[in-house]
Design a protein around this nucleic acid. Structure first.
Length: 932
RNA sequence: GCCGCGAUGGUGGAAUCGGUAGACACGAAGGACUUAAAAUCCUUUGGCCAGUGAUGGCUGUGUGGGUUCAAGUCCCACUCGCGGUACCA
């Protein structure tokens, strides 16, 4: 009986859909379990084999949980807003909605053919008004909330206003506009003049995580700094909770570490340095026109070694400290900093800076220290001003060397003649009352000292910045905001969703306003609406909540429904979202939690990162040596031969015409015109003449071996493998099994179809077992094989070790040979159902007959340990740790009895060679080691 | 630079608690069937050495040390590869 995978798969996919087998209810007596995939951006290229890796894993887990008796929520949707569709629209005039929907349709079709158990009734797409209504709603809530630092949670801003009305007499005297301006400093979604990453090529601002090395992540265009009035989300208010929450989620340590670094908590102190008023003699504190300048440091212990101060070019202090003599030079420096792009700054690591002309007073030594400006100090972190301790900070050190500033070592034995000593260890010196202390103690002592004397106070700083939330783009969620008297006001909730208007041109307006400036009547009650749209992460920050209750038009998610599903139990996706989506979602969720809209403070309980699937490229080697014709290709195994060495040029060849590194000659010639007359030197060194060999393309006894390399999967490398092709050739079940077989889920690996035949052969073997099914009693050996498999597969799925299950199935099928007993086959069908649902469904129906129900509704087999009990243990007998032979002994043999038997054995005598053993180690049930 | 992850045959990988390294699969070689091929099946397959042979010995998990009766697994130092991050005071 032929294993006709395509017929079987189509048949069951249709059945499942018609019978609504994967529809999930929000009401169930069963325990709940929520398995989520990171939803994809539907690009025009469709899915490649890398995408389904995580989806297959989560599908296996979902099916398994369901078989274990859980009500499993396993939805899929689309992150449908984004730049590519918009840029395509600018180029072609096609509305982004049209291309997006077309791409989504293709994705759904591709996902369908792989046989996932998604409940498609729950599909969401972020560009759907029914969906983005709730994105806008959440934004409005953020606009109308502030972060109460005492309660450490978000509260409605009306509460803050009420407080002011009660306690703050000035509040009532303010004009409406002034009140609004004041409130803007508190709102969680707020408008401010911010230094942003502006990408001129994309015509929009980008969030920090959308910029890498001064280039936009999408497109790789240069990014520059610019001050613009932008919406931001006060993510930084949540920094402490985002950090602390990591201790309560089951994520990999590496991912948590990445987030911790991104949040970047540092405990230090803010200290006040008095600036000696420019051009005036040093005066006492009381009568000075001097002013205090606050800095942040994590090394309070090093105050005695401060030899200069540095301000960020954008620091507010700059204008106050610059002297008339230095003004020209300072302005020139500031102008230079401003004009440099982020990328130039990163690329150029040379020390730059300028003296302001002013001096500050070291509060401990009372020494005068010069104040400089340099762009190695960042305006956005701490106070934008630092005390420089060149002996113990490498950046300060480089600066001091460049400007010939003094370097005072503060730690005994630290040699600072060549480089700074940055480590926080050693004994203090040159440091007044700190001398002789360990660094750690000194930091503590200095913190106490500055607190007591009022010079400063202990302070925690975070690296995490507020998220810039405006995009000068069309294809995104419109802000539910209108402007009155230049101040923003939120739309009433019942006006939501504010629909994205139709426009003809997707480009910015001629006067440089965002594309929405082209929209007719883009107003609310006559007031102009916001022209920016929201960024990509807006729609993806709470989509997991919407799946719970995606048809609800009264709430993002019904309270009861949310209390049933609670949170995502298992989230599978790539690491690339470690600092973007996974921070924003956690922030968004915590905000909704604060206001009581969701019942869990962390959205994703357990998270697993799937590895990337890289491309495995193939090469042919064109001969370019003497007498080269340009169409002679040398087999890979020969290219190091003296006659070809360094005389060949590797050329990428489409991996789809290479099988197990052997080139399909016929397909290669047909691939591109330039290869039509290609000639070859085959693996065995013989050459070919097309005309001489009528068998080409039918049977080619001679092989051309291709070289290979692991590279990014991309069109230009001709190494993109499309799941559709694999499914057409082998079927979805083979694809699913093979993707898992490739290796551990978390690990990156190249896609390499070498080996897919083995998996496919296994499925055929499995298939053949179901040809005729009998009701004979299974033997003990058969039961043992089955229960060994149950145990193994159960353990594997529980531990996300999907790759090791496939060999277990192969071994079981090999052991069972031609077993055709219903009692065994029935259970195997259930076991393999999560991995290969189509063949399992067919097998299940063969075992159970028509009308038996679907295999997803079966029960997961239980392992009966009784079948696994081995009566004999095969003891490896080691001599000095080397196994020499094995000895089978009854399981119950006591330890000293084992030793006796082993010592009495002929072979033991042989290896002892008359010597008495020094020691005999017997680990009952495991091993015997004799030490000579 | 810093943080994280990894390195096991020709290839993907297995070894889940420190206990027989290389399961399973691919590839390769040889054989059976076949006019031939495909498909299928069987045998061999980490390296080196000895033996006609059954077999036996040595060696072997990136490198160098260490702990242990016993190390792919634990500890220390390093090399290389991948990913993240980049003046965060």
């Amino acid at each position: 009986m032929e294993y006709n995978f395509s017929e079987i798969e189509k048949k069951w996919q249709k059945e499942w859909e018609e019978k609504g087998v994967y529809t999930v209810s929000n009401e169930s007596e069963k325990p709940h379990y929520y398995v989520l995939d990171m939803f994809p951006y539907p690009s025009g290229a469709g899915l490649h084999v890398g995408h389904p890796l995580g989806y297959i894993a989560s599908d296996i887990y979902s099916r398994y949980k369901r078989l274990q008796g859980f009500n499993v929520l396993h939805p899929m949707g689309f992150d449908a807003y984004g730049l590519p569709a918009e840029q395509y629209a600018i180029q072609t005039g096609q509305h982004p909605e049209v291309t997006t929907n077309k791409n989504i349709a293709r994705y759904i079709e591709q996902l369908r053919t792989i046989g996932f158990c998604y409940d498609w009734n729950r599909e969401v797409r972020t560009c759907d008004p029914k969906f983005y209504k709730w994105t806008q709603w959440a934004f409005l809530k953020m606009f109308n909330s502030y972060y109460d630092t005492t309660l450490q949670k978000a509260r409605p801003i009306t509460e803050l206003v009420a407080k002011w009305e009660e306690n703050d007499p000035t509040w009532k005297t303010l004009s409406e506009k002034e009140q609004q301006e004041r409130l803007m400093n508190y709102r969680i979604a707020y408008l401010s003049d911010t230094k942003v990453n502006w990408c001129p090529k994309l015509g929009t601002v980008l969030a920090n995580d959308e910029v890498s090395e001064g280039l936009s992540v999408r497109g790789g265009y240069p990014v520059e700094q610019r001050v613009m009035r932008q919406w931001s989300l006060r993510v930084s208010a949540y920094a402490g909770r985002l950090l602390e929450g990591l201790d309560r989620v089951d994520w990999t340590e590496s991912l948590k570490e990445t987030q911790r670094n991104w949040i970047g908590r540092s405990e230090g102190a803010e200290m006040v340095f008095l600036v000696k008023s420019p051009g005036k003699a040093l005066k006492s504190k009381a009568e000075s026109e001097d002013f205090p300048m606050t800095i942040f440091t994590t090394r309070a212990d090093t105050v005695f070694g401060v030899t200069f101060m540095v301000l960020a070019p954008e620091s507010e202090y700059v204008q106050r400290v610059v002297t008339d003599e230095q003004r020209e030079e300072v302005e020139a420096y500031l102008a230079r900093c401003k004009n440099r792009t982020e990328r130039e700054r990163i690329a150029d690591r040379r020390v730059t800076g300028v003296f302001t002309g002013s001096y500050a007073i070291n509060p401990l030594t009372n020494g005068e220290i010069p104040i400089y400006i340099s762009d190695y100090v960042l305006a956005g972190y701490g106070t934008g001003a630092i005390m420089a301790v060149p002996a113990h900070d490498s950046r300060d050190y480089a600066f001091a060397k460049h400007f010939n500033l003094p370097i005072i070592p503060l730690i005994e034995g630290a040699d600072v003649s060549e480089e700074s000593f940055d480590a926080k260890e050693g004994k203090m010196m040159n440091s007044g009352f700190l001398n002789g202390m360990e660094v750690k103690d000194a930091i503590q002592a200095m913190k106490e000292y500055i607190t007591n004397t009022g010079i400063g106070h202990v302070k925690v700083n975070y690296r995490l910045r507020d998220a810039i939330f405006s995009r000068q783009r069309y294809w995104g969620e419109p802000f539910p905001i209108y402007y009155k008297d230049d101040m923003p006001y939120g739309l009433p909730e019942d006006e939501l969703p504010l629909q994205l208007p139709e426009i003809k041109e997707f480009k910015p307006t001629s006067d440089g306003r965002p594309p929405l400036g082209n929209a007719a009547n883009w107003t609310y009650n006559g007031y102009p609406l916001e022209l920016c749209t929201m960024p990509g992460f807006a729609g993806s920050s709470a989509y997991y909540l919407r799946y719970m209750d995606n048809h609800n038009d009264q709430a993002l998610v019904d309270k009861k429904v949310n209390e049933y599903w609670r949170q995502v139990d298992l989230y599978i996706g790539g690491t690339e979202h470690a600092t973007g989506h996974l921070i924003y979602s956690r922030f968004w969720n915590k905000f909704l939690y604060d206001l009581g809209y969701v019942c869990e403070d962390e959205p994703f309980k357990k998270l697993i990162n799937q590895g990337m699937i890289q491309g495995r490229s193939n090469f042919v080697y064109r001969y370019i040596g003497e007498g080269a014709t340009g169409n002679l290709y040398i087999s890979y195994n020969l290219i190091d031969n003296p006659e070809y060495k360094d005389k060949v040029q590797p050329i990428h060849v489409d991996v789809n015409i290479v099988h197990n590194d052997v080139l399909d000659i016929h397909a290669f010639r047909a691939w591109m015109p330039e290869f039509r007359n290609a000639q070859f030197i085959f693996a065995d060194g013989t050459s070919n003449e097309v005309e001489d060999n009528p068998n080409i393309g039918v049977s080619m006894p001679k092989q051309y071996i291709c070289g290979w390399a692991v590279e990014k999967m991309s069109k230009s490398m001709f190494n993109v493998v499309n799941p559709d092709d694999v499914i057409a050739q082998y079927g979805a079940d083979t694809l699913r099994l093979y993707e898992m077989f490739l290796g551990p889920l978390e690990m990156s690996k190249p896609w390499d179809t070498n080996g897919i035949d083995g998996v496919h052969r296994f499925l055929r073997k499995l298939w053949n077992m179901y040809e005729t099914i009998t009701d004979d009693e299974p033997t003990m050996d058969e039961l043992r094989s089955l229960h060994k498999l149950i145990k193994k597969v159960t353990w594997d799925i529980e531990n996300f070790s999907f790759n090791t299950s496939i060999p277990a199935f192969m071994i079981a099928v090999n052991e069972l040979g031609k077993c055709n007993k219903r009692a065994i086959l029935e259970q195997i069908a259930v076991l393999i159902a999560p991995y290969a649902p189509h063949i399992a469904e067919e097998a299940w129906h063969r075992c159970k007959g028509d009308g038996c129900g679907f295999v997803v509704n079966a029960e997961w087999p239980k392992c009966n340990e009784e079948y696994l009990v081995e009566n004999n243990i095969n003891y490896p007998i080691q001599f000095n740790g080397k196994v020499r032979f094995t000895l089978s002994l009854p399981k119950e043999t006591p330890k000293d009895e084992v030793e006796k038997i082993v010592m009495a054995n002929d072979q033991t005598a042989k290896y002892l060679a008359g010597n008495a053993p020094k020691k005999v180690i017997v680990v009952p049930g495991r091993i015997v080691n004799i030490v000579l």
